[in-house]
Amino acid sequence: MSYTERVIDHYENPRNVGSLDKNDPNVGTGLVGAPSCGDVMKLQIKVNNGVIEEAKFKTFGCGSAIASSSLATEWMKGKSLDEAQKIKNIEIAHYLSLPPVKIHCSVLAEDAIKAAIEDYKSKNKGEMADAA
């Protein structure tokens, strides 16, 4: 499998590897994929005033999966939840020049973004309703 420089860079120097406290009300956690399929992504965001101030990931998967999730955390940081919600798998795939057989890695990253945002929102349902 030949990879582009961007995939290799994210694999060798992954951005934002780590974990946030999943019990913190300001943290949203997304866990997607399955070990039997060969890739699992855990993506976490810490939200302050509707803005993602921290994003962390851990990924079990191939180089493309690691690069996709690393890139996703980088793109999410500093964005509002609404902006982050709009990140599309095709943008990740395009930026990393993923080959067709690896497109599912970018799909998984988009799923992880959505799952983390969803988790944050469900934890903070009451507050969000108050703010509205």
């Binding site: 992954p14 590897v17 974990s19 994929g33 039997s36 399929c37 699992v40 855990k42 851990k58």
Partner: peptide, 24 residues
């Protein structure tokens, strides 16, 4: 392994088989 969510869960004592994974 430092980068693997599965390793982290295993070290926390979570049985990976107890989780309902969304296959794809």
């Amino acid at each position: 392994r430092e980068m693997s969510p599965l390793w982290e869960m295993a070290q926390e004592g979570i049985d990976l088989k107890s989780i309902e994974w969304a296959g794809h």
